[in-house]
């Protein structure tokens, strides 16, 4: 049964009319057109779908949309400021060319933003540990760690 649900995404209120059990990821991508978050596994195993829930990075692929309505959600699209200036993590990924296909990038950027929020100066080991939920099949990990390190010092 479809229900009217209010979501707070990237600082804006959105009304959606969906099955309340629908995982948030599909609503973000298909109803709100926010395709930064990707479908990777639908099992909370790979991190491709991560968004910030009240500032914490977590997968959105299993979270029923009705539960998500209680939180402030930030997606990749919402990281840049009003003038379009990139978040320092985004900029560092560009500077380090930390991507091949880039399918994993959403989750990696989101998880790194949350990490630096909590720990502005992580060691390489802490960076690796905090990205353990994210899969990258192209093997850009070493660049990603460099990028996060760089962002932490800017």
């Amino acid at each position: 049964m479809k229900t009217q649900i209010t979501l707070n995404v990237n600082g804006q209120q959105h009304e959606v009319n969906v099955d309340p059990q629908t995982p948030l990821l599909y609503v973000l991508r298909n109803n709100l057109g926010l395709t930064g978050p990707k479908f990777g596994c639908g099992l909370s195993q790979c991190g491709a779908c991560m968004v910030l829930f009240d500032g914490k990075a977590n997968p959105s692929c299993l979270m029923p949309v009705e539960q998500a309505s209680k939180m402030e959600i930030t997606t990749l699209e919402g990281l840049a400021d009003e003038n379009g200036n990139l978040h320092k993590v985004q900029q560092a990924f560009i500077d380090e060319q930390a991507a091949q296909c880039g399918y994993c990038l959403n989750g990696l950027v989101i998880a790194s933003v949350a990490l630096l929020d909590e720990n502005p100066n992580p060691t390489e080991e802490q960076i690796q540990e905090s990205l353990y939920r994210n899969i990258c099949r192209c093997g850009v990990h070493a660049r990603v760690v460099r990028a996060v390190k760089k962002a932490s010092t800017t």
């Binding site: 395709t35 990707k38 990749l76 991507a99």
Partner: peptide
Amino acid sequence: DIPAMVRGELEYVQD
């Protein structure tokens, strides 16, 4: 393409 990727603007076939 990387600046577009980090903004979530690169269009994949999935998108």
